[in-house]
């Protein structure tokens, strides 16, 4: 548990693992972790946008706030929670092999 914000951190998701587990809580390691996290959120936002969803906020750089256009929101701790929650919110499975999604991603890359 974080002594400052009282958040429970049960486990570090595999996507945020670094060479040394302690490294991510210190100085430059934390900077790198947040930079990597921002990059993930940028890409997630493009993907989620295809389904009318977005990452509304990134609380304390530990929790994703997922939202839709109706104002529904969910707080999620990791990518493992994000995708099933997004599928429920969108009412469809978010499939990374979906050709239309891939076209949109390639359009984004070309800009």
């Amino acid at each position: 548990m974080c002594v400052l914000c009282a958040q429970m951190v049960n486990e570090i998701h595999w996507s945020e693992r670094q060479l040394n587990p302690e490294w991510i809580t210190r100085g430059a390691g934390e900077t790198a972790r947040r930079r990597s996290r921002r990059a993930r959120i940028r890409l997630c936002s493009v993907v989620l946008g295809h389904y009318g969803l977005e990452v509304v906020d990134d609380w304390s750089a530990t929790n994703y706030l997922l939202g839709d256009r109706k104002g529904n929101q969910r707080v999620l701790t990791s990518l493992a929670e994000l995708w099933p929650a997004a599928s429920r919110m969108a009412g469809a499975t978010l499939d990374p092999l979906d050709d239309r999604l891939l076209d949109r991603l390639l359009e984004t890359a070309g800009k």
Partner: peptide, 8 residues
């Protein structure tokens, strides 16, 4: 990868 494993 996380999205792929969730979907497939």
């Amino acid at each position: 990868l996380s999205m792929l494993l969730e979907a497939r």
